[in-house]
Computed example of a mutant assay.
Amino acid sequence: MSTKYKLHDPTEIYFVSFAVVGWIDVFTRALYRDILLESLSYCRKEKGLKLHAWVIMSNHVHLIISSKEGYLLPNIMRDLKKYSSFRILKEIKESITESRKEWMLYLFSKAGQQNGNNKNFQFWRQDNHPIALDPNLNMFDERINYLHNNPVEAGIVASPADYLYSSAIDYEEGKGLIEIDLLIG
């Protein structure tokens, strides 16, 4: 088993990226982004997640996270991905307005069939690509800037704080959509 992309040390702060299978643009819909935000908030309040920065793009997510003492980050990530995928898939299946419903369910079903860990559907790719951040502030700033500039680089907004589904506003102006654990000032 590979150890390259593992959340080894529970005391570390990690930069984590994970994507929807097939890089499907699920998060173009606010409903699905909001479900993910609810899941992040729940894990923060109930599962020991420390959420330092985040951005939700159309088909992937970047987080800077750690865990409270006594909690294991791999378990938090497992629960976050499991619950959010369950809820988002449920919404897609039950939707009467989702124009991409059949196409997305077909792709999620196909991905699930190809993975022995799933029964029917697979929503998230199984990898998280965690990178342990060195405790010096420059590395934190570098990753926070990278994460917050994702929507700018994608041509969605001109300024990081203009993108609603990101913690950039927390670092620049104040309170964003969900509570976070600031790393800097």
Rank of each mutant, 00 (worst) to 15 (best):
G48C: 04
N145Y: 12
N120G: 03
L183S: 02
L37Q: 10
P135Q: 10
Q122P: 00
A111W: 01
Y163Q: 02
P151V: 12
T97A: 10
K81P: 03
L73Y: 11
K50C: 11
E46L: 09
R143K: 15
H60Q: 10
H62K: 03
R87C: 09
W124T: 01
I13R: 04
I180E: 06
D141I: 14
L49K: 07
Q122E: 08
T11Y: 12
G116Q: 08
I184V: 10
K110F: 07
L37A: 11
P130S: 03
M77N: 03
N120T: 09
P135E: 14
R87E: 14
W23A: 05
R29W: 07
K93M: 14
S58A: 13
E172V: 10
R125M: 11
H62I: 06
A158L: 15
E12S: 14
N149H: 14
I92N: 02
A111F: 01
I92V: 08
A132T: 11
I178Q: 01
L72F: 15
C43L: 10
I131P: 00
F121P: 00
M57L: 05
G70R: 02
N118C: 13
N128D: 11
K119I: 10
Y165D: 06
N136E: 12
P74H: 07
Q113D: 09
S41V: 04
I56C: 08
L40F: 03
Y171D: 04
T28C: 12
K175W: 12
I64P: 04
L40D: 01
K110C: 04
L51D: 04
P10D: 14
F27V: 03
F108P: 02
Y42I: 06
F121K: 02
K82Q: 12
F108E: 04
R100F: 00
D34M: 12
S167G: 08
G174P: 10
Y106K: 14
I35N: 00
M1H: 07
T11V: 15
L73G: 08
I92S: 02
K47A: 09
R100L: 04
K101A: 08
C43D: 05
L137I: 12
V152S: 05
F27Q: 01
V61Y: 00
L183F: 02
E12Q: 14
E102F: 05
A111D: 01
H62V: 06
W124S: 01
W54G: 01
K93C: 09
L182N: 11
S2G: 03
V26G: 01
N120P: 00
E142H: 15
E98C: 07
S85A: 12
Y5L: 10
K81M: 09
K50S: 05
P74A: 05
I96C: 06
S85L: 03
H60G: 05
A53Q: 01
K175Q: 13
E94G: 11
A19L: 06
Y32E: 02
D170Y: 06
